[in-house]
């Protein structure tokens, strides 16, 4: 058993890292510095930055700690995408450059900038606190340590992936809604909230869920899937977000929100016509007053262009709707049965 020598022949080429710079003490606006260095195959972006810092410019500033993809410190945007510098290969990035041979390195978005590639994590921590991102144990503190909770493997698997989160904030940086509103809960905090709510040892499920369905909460997610697509741990974050929504709809008392009503309108329309009745969706979601105030001016234009959706009686049901309704109802019976079994 010998290893072919050529397996280890590692090429070398010049690569330019174009690094975002801003030192708030002296700079009034950000700029970019180009560093061209020789890089061999197998070198990570973090190692390349370390090389620059040690040999060319000691002042470039970034966070790095474990260098092994587990601490989450070195989140940054590399060629426009938020990821960890320590697990990103320079050679892999070369094919993603907008300008040949130039890798662009920028700080994460949606968080306040401190310096160069370093952003402030405090707002994220504040949200973790606001949404009680911890297990509030059903066991009183004085009783702890005496006996184990019994937890099924099935339950563990429900939040196993979610506990992979290393809070690198790549998802925070990529989130479409956070760009528009910094108050938004953020994908990482939704993920952690989901994980806590799925834990049978936790006692404040309803309190947390109650907070999540408020403004800037779970219903503000716009399903763009950017968080999930860029998650450095490949966590299906949208499943967690949908999981919280499913939970909110199932839990009585959480239904009185625009998001919940909007989602349930789909179910109701499909069950009746097989089609969505778009004309009435706005006021079923937000009420008549909101609709008149917000959508009337636009409605006028749409009427002029004959773009308005047809009123409910004119929405043509799908072909074979009777049969479809029967099938839909049969499934409803299955679901009822499932709930019964589950509650037992």
């Amino acid at each position: 058993m010998t290893v072919a020598a050529d397996q280890h022949i590692e090429g070398k080429r010049d690569v330019t890292l174009r690094v975002f710079r801003l030192n708030p003490q002296v700079d009034s606006k950000p700029y970019y510095d180009d560093y061209t260095i020789p890089v061999e195959r197998g070198i990570t972006v973090l190692r390349a930055l370390n090389y620059i810092k040690e040999n060319i410019d000691a002042s470039i500033s970034y966070r790095a700690f474990c260098q092994a993809g587990i601490c989450g410190s070195c989140g940054m945007r590399i060629n426009g995408i938020s990821k960890l510098a320590c697990t990103t290969q320079v050679w892999d990035e070369l094919s993603k450059c907008r300008e040949e041979g130039i890798i662009k390195i920028e700080p994460l978005r949606n968080m306040p900038l401190i310096k160069d590639l370093i952003v402030d994590m405090d707002p994220l921590v504040a949200k973790m606190k606001h949404y009680s991102n911890w297990v509030d144990s059903t066991m009183p503190e004085a009783e702890m340590g005496k006996k184990e909770f019994l937890v099924s493997e099935e339950e563990f698997l429900r939040y196993d992936k979610a506990t992979d989160c290393i809070l690198c904030a790549s998802c925070v940086s990529e989130c479409s809604i956070l760009r528009a509103n910094k108050e938004y809960v953020s994908p990482a905090v939704l993920l952690k909230s989901y994980r806590m709510n799925a834990d049978s040892r936790d006692a404040i499920h309803d309190v947390r869920l109650g907070e999540l369905v408020q403004d800037h909460g779970v219903w503000d997610c716009t399903h763009c899937y950017r968080c999930q697509e860029t998650c450095v741990k490949s966590i299906p974050i949208m499943d967690a977000i949908h999981g919280i929504r499913e939970d909110a709809i199932e839990s009585r008392g959480m239904k009185d929100t625009a998001g919940s009503k909007h989602a349930e309108a789909f179910m109701s329309d499909i069950s009746k016509k097989g089609k969505l009745v778009e004309a009435t969706l706005p006021f079923r979601t937000n009420g008549v007053a909101w609709t008149v105030k917000n959508l009337l001016p636009m409605a006028v234009k749409m009427i002029l262009k004959r773009r308005t959706p047809p009123p409910p009686p004119l929405v043509k049901p799908s072909k074979g709707i009777k049969q479809f309704r029967a099938e839909f109802k049969e499934m409803s019976d299955h679901v009822k049965q499932d709930h019964k079994t589950h509650n037992k």
């Binding site: 809604i177 219903w219 625009a258």
Partner: peptide, 11 residues
């Protein structure tokens, strides 16, 4: 932004 038009219009 379509999927939040009726829930978080401003965003």
């Amino acid at each position: 932004g379509f999927h939040t038009l009726l829930v978080a219009e401003e965003e």
